[in-house]
Design a protein around this nucleic acid. Structure first.
Lengths: 326, 326
DNA sequence: CTGAAAGCGCTTACAG
DNA sequence: CTGAAAGCGCTTACAG
């Protein structure tokens, strides 16, 4: 079963390949009889013709692939949702998402040169040299910066603002001595540091002491150690890097026989399913992954000149979900 | 900055493109002087040459892409781990993973015809017609079946065995009246039904009553309703579809003032981070995602004739993690 | 041992 | 309004 090519469609509809190409690409600048158009469309449908991505890519010098560059650590529960929404949104425009995990495997520069994606979408910053090389090769790089970024087409998930929201909430609930529960994994530092910076800034703003920081593993013993240190320092509220860390902190408090939120309040980030059914139910910061994915997709389209306007930032990127733990 | 092509490398090293191709593809059937080989390799490195994937794909009739077909629902925390391991393992052989979410976006048949992947790797069964069409086009389809599958190259994650392990454990702990907590989401039915079947089979084997089944949403109210019904039926142990459902069940039991495992024991599946720090710590079934990914990668390579032997099944695909909830 | 040439399937100036 | 021809970058028979 040989591949159906545009030549087959041309033969079947009695026109040249040029015309087939014109019709299938719906070129506005070429005038074609409606009859011809219809004939070609019918033939293509009848034959089940799908243009070869390889041939198009070779011709155009770029493929229909969006290279999604992920860091070498798991971004957490959000990442599959993000990929899903992104794929769906971009598929509408004939673009497919190629996932690249930076850690193992081929070096990035080899991959992008081989694939010639139409856009590189980065969820983790990579060497400026790579970015430059891609841009010189005419491949736009769309990135999510962690905070504000000089590039205008970049969607910044405001990590610091998330931390600030956590601290604001705790202070509003009457707490004056806060702690920050950082993840143990160093690879998350880029995110954790920025969120912590937001907590710090909020503390200053509210004129309360800077947060006591401890890193917490995802087990009871590690959390218990942090809890003991915090209690010694008079801490009454903990902002955790994310819900998983927050759940560990809850376990540490439980282990220490402390009441939540009576003795110590806890707030997380992400609103994972487990947060809602935790004991007590966890107050957290919900992030609009869908909206972020939508926005990223729009940024990709904009970079390709496929969207009319620069995508608007979604309003409700994140918000507080108040539950029993604060 | 125009693209560096094999012609550039040929010019730079003073040989023909044929020779460049021979050297770079390390063809064993052609004899080349070591000097020539070295000259070409040097020139390629100097110029930063990377063969165009598009041109190769056009020539070969297939690309270096592995099309990973995912179902339209989130597979849960395991999926990003799986993708990561898979990407890394396949990258070693110059293969890249292209993710396709079945739900939205382009229909599958359009995508594979356009992309001409070298292998399609499916984590969710799709229409037999699609499979046939791909195979006719010479594209091997490697799939994970939910249980046993006629195809030999398929790695079956034994869902029923997971359910059986749960039930075996509960019965071994002295329970005689079991319940099954199914997920509310219908899209998970394919997995949930098979796991439940495993629980049922184990109950029969142990000559205890068939499990009481209820579907549980990820919130306290829903879990509480299920708990009340189970208690009325004399249930003393619950096998949950996964850890998230199990955590909800724990919340329902807590809400009902029942003791775990004193009044009711609970076991999940997945060993998510939250399981370890739950109250009480959740007994669960751990799955070797890495090993499964490794195995899938091996199956892909075998399908391409790049691996010597058929990949062995990993031994320890899943096992019990005993904690406080049973 | 190495080179000239064809062809994979597409799009797009360029003629008619 | 439509067609013949070139060329994107690669590999591989086929000559030499």
């Amino acid at each position: 079963m040989a591949r159906v090519t545009s030549a087959d469609v041309a033969r079947e509809s009695g026109v040249s390949r040029t015309t087939v190409s014109y019709v299938l690409n719906a070129r506005k600048d070429v005038v074609l009889t409606e009859a011809t158009r219809q004939r070609v469309l019918d033939a293509a449908a009848r034959l089940g013709y799908t243009p070869s991505a390889a041939a198009r890519a070779l011709r155009a010098g770029r493929s229909d692939l969006v290279l999604l560059v992920l860091p070498d650590w798991t971004l957490g529960p959000a990442i599959d949702t993000l990929i899903e929404h992104l794929s769906t949104a971009l598929a509408t425009h004939g673009l497919s998402v190629l996932v690249h995990i930076r850690h193992g495997g081929r070096p990035l520069d080899e991959l992008w040169r081989a694939v010639t994606p139409c856009v590189v979408l980065s969820l983790s910053p990579f060497p400026a040299a790579d970015t430059r090389a891609m841009q010189q090769a005419g491949i736009p790089v769309v990135g999510t910066a962690l905070d504000d970024d000089p590039q205008p087409d970049v969607f910044a998930v405001p990590q610091a603002s998330i931390g600030a929201l956590q601290a604001d909430h705790l202070v509003a609930r009457g707490h004056r001595v806060l702690a920050y529960a950082a993840p143990h994994d160093d690879r998350l530092a880029a995110f954790a540091d920025r969120r912590l910076a937001g907590v710090r800034a909020a503390c200053e703003r509210h004129r309360v002491p800077a947060p006591e920081v401890a890193s917490v593993d995802l087990d009871v013993a590690s959390a218990r150690a942090a809890v003991d240190a915090w209690r010694a320092a008079g801490v009454t509220a903990v902002a955790a890097y994310n819900d998983e860390v927050a759940l560990a902190v809850l376990a540490g408090l439980r282990d220490a026989g402390l009441d939540v939120p009576g003795d110590v309040a806890v707030i997380g980030v992400d609103d994972i399913p487990a947060a809602r059914v935790a004991a007590p139910a966890l107050t957290t910061v919900w992030q609009a992954i869908d909206a972020q994915a939508e926005h990223l997709a729009a940024a990709v389209l904009a970079a390709l000149g496929l969207a009319e306007s620069t995508p608007e930032r979604p309003d409700d990127v994140f918000h507080l979900v108040q539950r029993a733990s604060t």
